[in-house]
Nucleic acid binder design. Structure first.
Length: 106
DNA sequence: CGCGTGACGTCTC
DNA sequence: CGAGACGCCACGC
């Protein structure tokens, strides 16, 4: 399974605890800066049995998922806060501090 | 092989 | 600065 989707899973799995990554960020790491959409779509199809921390993946604004994909945005927020991710009063992730800086890709 | 869809991103009004 | 429109890429049918 060398699909783009699989590559996304690998990247998400490499996100360190207490950090978060944006769809566009992952897309760039995968070599397709314009494939942010594909990244989101791929993650949306991520099987839970893979044990991926999809809640660490957010959009460029640092917002949670719009819907109740994880059982509710509050669910994701709780998980991130528990990992030490900084949050803003707006309920968004502090990308300035909690963004995952990928020094290496593979 | 072509069309439609989707957890996005960036530009323009 | 806010909202809207277009564009990109991968995948299912």
């Amino acid at each position: 399974m060398n699909s783009f989707t699989a590559r996304v899973y690998e990247m998400v799995a490499k996100i360190p605890r207490g950090k978060v990554a944006t769809y566009g960020q992952l897309a760039v790491l995968l070599g397709c800066p314009r494939a942010a959409r594909a990244v989101g779509t791929a993650i949306s199809k991520t099987p839970e049995h893979l044990g991926l921390s999809c809640h660490r993946v957010i959009n460029s604004k640092g917002e949670m998922v719009p819907g109740n994909v994880f059982g509710g945005p509050d669910r994701q927020r709780r998980l991130l806060m528990d990992e030490g991710v900084c949050f803003l009063e707006d309920g968004r992730v502090d990308l300035k501090k909690s963004i995952w800086v990928s020094a290496f890709k593979d």
